[in-house]
Amino acid sequence: MRLAIAGDLHGDWTCHDERLLDQLQPDALLFVGDLSDGDLRLVKAITRLQLPSAVILGNHDRGKDRSGERLRQQISMLGDLDCSWKMRSWSMPPIAVVGARPCSSGGGFHLSEAVQSVFGPVTEEESVVRIVEAASLAPDHWPLILLAHSGPTGLGSDASSICGRDWKHPHIDWGDRDLAIALERMRQRRSADLVVFGHMHHTLRGGKGERVTFHRDRYGTAYVNAACVPRSGSDEAGHPLIHFTWVEFENCHLSLVSHRWFHPTGKLAYEQTLLRQPSPEMTSC
């Protein structure tokens, strides 16, 4: 099973992405949020994709509209693709994707006025419960993925940490506290196989190096930051490149995580492998 993950788009999504996906033919596509600043045309383009897809919205997606109306419009357009505090699953491929708190800006726990307008004054504990309850609906033998805009707390407090604050001092852990608590409670039943998020861009502020983008904890849960921004560029010869984070499961077990840069034709130009491990003996998903 092959999953393509689109990091923070920030409006960078064109027909070239759609044609590339036609060439790559992943089994499913995940969006980690910050699609744009509320551009409904981009949301509509995502809804037209002929792929099993799941979307969590990011802090930029609410735009400058504090009333929540633009956010509400996007959620309505996305329909079942929206994963806000919900599980999205497909039998083909057999996978369960659980959305965390929508429109997160990291930094512990905070709900913007727009989010409160749409979802109400959700407390941190209520957010935790919603995530855990959604995860409890996942079939035990299916891979379980948590889809968030910001990753959880507890993964480091350096500027280059996977969720580290790099834009001002002091550099601290800027993850989501409710997501970390939810992951801990979920372990009473089962651990998540993979937590996918963005928000904290790969290149550190001021050009001061690159961020760590992968982590695996002692419970076996893998964490990947997909926020390669900008996600389009060119190679040394000037040929265009498009980035997707790429994940593969074999026999329902995580076997590969990498960052990949493709030519629009589908040819792989560069790959940064974050995890590669052999699959266990054949099991049934």
Results as ranks from 00 to 15, higher is better:
Met77Gly: 02
Leu256Gly: 09
Gly107Asn: 07
Gly154Ala: 07
Ala54Ser: 09
Gly120Ala: 05
Asn225Trp: 05
Gly238Phe: 05
Ser91Trp: 10
Leu241Ala: 01
His169Gln: 15
Lys44Gln: 14
Met92Asn: 13
Asp140Trp: 01
Arg41Cys: 07
Ala148Asp: 09
Ala114Val: 07
Glu69Ala: 14
Gly99Thr: 08
Gly238Lys: 10
Pro170Tyr: 04
Val257Pro: 02
Val55Asn: 07
Val195Cys: 12
Ser36Arg: 04
Trp13Arg: 01
His60Thr: 09
Trp246Asp: 00
Arg48Cys: 15
Ser157Gln: 13
Ser284Met: 14
Ile75Cys: 10
Leu146Glu: 01
Asp173Ile: 05
Leu144Lys: 03
Phe109Thr: 09
Leu21Asp: 10
Glu281Gly: 13
Leu51Thr: 09
Leu183Arg: 08
Glu184Val: 12
Arg260Met: 09
Glu210Met: 13
Ala135Arg: 05
Met77Ala: 11
Leu21Phe: 08
Arg216Cys: 06
Phe214Ser: 00
Arg72Lys: 14
Val97Pro: 02
Trp142Thr: 02
Arg70Asp: 02
Gln116Arg: 15
Ser104Tyr: 06
Arg187Tyr: 08
Ala159Trp: 05
Lys44Pro: 02
Glu248Lys: 09
Ile172Gln: 04
Asp173His: 06
Val195Lys: 04
Ser91Gly: 08
Asp17Gly: 02
Ala237Lys: 00
Leu42Glu: 08
His202Phe: 11
Ser127Glu: 08
His199Arg: 03
Asp61Asn: 13
Ser84Ala: 15
Arg276Gly: 06
Pro278Met: 11
His239Trp: 02
His202Ile: 07
Val43Tyr: 07
Gln25Arg: 15
Gly33Met: 13
Val229Phe: 15
Tyr223His: 11
Gly33Val: 12
Cys15Pro: 03
Gly207Lys: 02
Ser112Cys: 03
Gln25Asp: 04
Ser136Gln: 14
Pro26Cys: 09
His201Ile: 00
Ser105Gln: 13
Gly11Asp: 01
Val196Arg: 01
